[in-house]
Design a protein around this nucleic acid. Structure first.
Lengths: 78, 78
DNA sequence: TATTATACACACATATATGTGTTATTATTT
DNA sequence: AAATAATAACACATATATGTGTGTATAATA
């Protein structure tokens, strides 16, 4: 994801995921284990480095015990 | 996306997108033009063939004039 | 200082989403 | 039946997400 037009949206998405995770007192490792997604991938998503997919969103939301749509429940001006 | 464990979620996601589009009386071609995403890609997403990304979700939601989270606002048992 | 926990930063191979083009199918209308 | 519109179904090249491994950086704690 180099210089994508939606880079700021990905940053906001990652920041929101990080908040949801930290609010639940989970480490990246905890979430990685619970979602069966590599910890490096969790970090890349939280830093907004990559443009993750519906399946990954679904897996993460299950691990966080929230609805997938909550991962998009943040303010963004674009 | 061959035989993915989340294939049913992708099918449900695509079905929901199709409904949102049809409710607005838009053709796939209309949505493709408005979102600047190839019509073939729209079709593949609606059929649940591919595991689309946050950026694509964001572009589609803007074209539909809805919030990205609405694309995940459907029931699913998994 | 040393240890531990957490997050970041690389590299690499593989799978797959994207983007483009073309053709086929299906449904609707004339 | 023929024409048109909408969707599906192919093929292909390219970009990139994923998955894995290894190493580094930082902060907190003993």
């Amino acid at each position: 994801m180099i210089n994508n037009k939606n880079e700021f949206y990905l940053k906001a998405f990652g920041k929101h995921l990080r908040k949801l995770r930290e609010d639940r007192l989970l480490s990246q490792e905890n979430l990685a284990n619970d979602s069966d997604i590599p910890i490096n991938q969790i970090g890349r998503i939280e830093r907004g480095e990559i443009n993750t997919t519906v399946n990954t969103i679904y897996s993460i939301s299950k691990a966080l015990r929230i609805e997938p749509k909550e991962l998009f429940d943040f303010k963004f001006k674009g």
